[in-house]
Design a binder for these strands. Sequence first.
DNA 1: CTGAAAGCGCTTACAG
DNA 2: CTGAAAGCGCTTACAG
Lengths: 340, 340
Amino acid sequence: MKRKITLKQIAKELDVSISTVSKSLRNSLEIGEETRLKVQAFAKFYNYKPNNIALSLKNRKTKAIGIIIPEIVHYFFSTVINGIEQVANEHGYSVIICLSDDSFDKEVLNMEMLANGSIDGFIMSLSKETQFRGDFHHITEVINQGMPVVMFDRVTNDILCDKVIIDDQSAAYEAVQSLIDKGRKKIALVTTVDYVSVGKLRTDGYTKALLDNDIPFDENLIIKIEDVDTCEITIGKLLEDKAIDAVFAVNELFAVTIIKTASKIGLNVPRDLAVIAFTDGIISKYSTPTITTVSQSGIKMGNKAAKMLIDRLEADEDEEDENYKTEVIETHLIERESTN
Amino acid sequence: MKRKITLKQIAKELDVSISTVSKSLRNSLEIGEETRLKVQAFAKFYNYKPNNIALSLKNRKTKAIGIIIPEIVHYFFSTVINGIEQVANEHGYSVIICLSDDSFDKEVLNMEMLANGSIDGFIMSLSKETQFRGDFHHITEVINQGMPVVMFDRVTNDILCDKVIIDDQSAAYEAVQSLIDKGRKKIALVTTVDYVSVGKLRTDGYTKALLDNDIPFDENLIIKIEDVDTCEITIGKLLEDKAIDAVFAVNELFAVTIIKTASKIGLNVPRDLAVIAFTDGIISKYSTPTITTVSQSGIKMGNKAAKMLIDRLEADEDEEDENYKTEVIETHLIERESTN
DNA sequence: CTGAAAGCGCTTACAG
DNA sequence: CTGAAAGCGCTTACAG
């Protein structure tokens, strides 16, 4: 078991100073060619690679990006990570992922841990609990220490930083409008509780689309689901009592549940009931019928977020500007069988 | 913008030595109570947190685990990560994730990067290309440097290290047996190309189950799929030509495609065709009909893998034993609508 | 009880 | 052309 070789050992073997070895390997012209080549050959032979930790300490940067997301077993977040990874790797950054499990405490803990020198900057999406509490001190703190943060998807206006979002409101508007264009009149909305920022925006889009089309807004057609596991009953009631002809669901899990419940009651999708879901994922693609969705490119969001973060990290110290930007990623409707 | 405070600054402010500060904060009894409390109060006030990088360099351990997986947008791997995260966090470890994208080169690159001091040990699942090439020198090298590696799911016999797997062969056997028990006679196998280790084992289990039940083995009923996107045609042919009454698919993507194709040709699942898939995921749960699967608990695999790695990391240097273990995680059949 | 020194593995300004 | 020294932020054996 040969431990990794260090500069010190090379220096000793070759009977030169550590400085000489270091400079040779960095191809400094300060060092005579003979020595330089000798050192390089030796290092190559022993497969020398500089120790990242030592470099990080010396340079006071780690070339690592910290990602904090609520949940990894979630198609959308996985694709975002993929997107971040792509551009991070291109720029020589590695990626450290921590999960908040939608818990405020875990989010704080993980951020504190990573902020203590492990990474150069954060890309994050807020946990539900954090959004609910509205407590962002841990993020402010990190930013105050000079560590850039990019938020995506689940963001907050209370923090000034770079953000990557989709226009949830207008995407929802567009989805509902498309239902209306297809002649649907009684459109229900199945959504989450309000404190999740995106849920609220999507509701606004829904409402606006109805108003603009002179369709009476009926509060009873808005169903707020707290817990996915018990939502079947609520949805069943909605379908049986309300005589609706379309549903806009804020995520595909709700949508697929709606479809399954509908078919149990004998409703045909899309004939009797059209269904559109927010966030294109794997379920929509393989459900029967397949589900029309608002696609929200996680890859693009990840790419963009990583790009924004790295730009900031590599900006000259003094050109640091506080001009935070919010990038809006395009969405579009993927028409499938659940609408017609 | 107040940068993070260091021991040095505290020492200066309080007019004591760095050693004194360090010891006070570590609650060393060497230091007089008065000084100790004063330092602690000051540190607390300025929210001092030791720099992880400096600690890593000093201690020559990072308290970080490197994970290398082929793909993150994949339910199974996500659950494994979740499982690893759980126990890693419990033990004060953080987790660095790199994706190989099923590419040999990316796998090698990522491992080399992480091996240069960033982490204490690896948990990994081999990329397809690596399994195809059978080139594991990058893993051997890391192990030779004294860095423990735990492999899961896609493993190889060519490397001696701790492993976490399921008994793919007997799980496949069990699945096929259950089809036979339900009176199915012509059972097809839809699988991947052979070099993916788990694919091969599952095929063995399938074959064995047939033999043990005196069902003639027909090579034409084994379909090897190279590319998911073009598999519909192959599957269509299988269903139309072969007059089969059951299919065992090695993953749920194949299974759902089979079901959709079957229903297009007018076959009813499960009446005309029973379908079982390997690896329980989100698709099986929401497909119509829902799919009977062999559940392979990613959480448990992740838990176990992390536990094994941490045990090794925290074993006394000298009690290092080369007694590598292979843990087998239990699987079980989750019966759903696609079989009856 | 407190502090100077050495060291983790590296880089770089400075001396010679 | 080469090397000693200082330093990144910490810990700990050792001296006083």
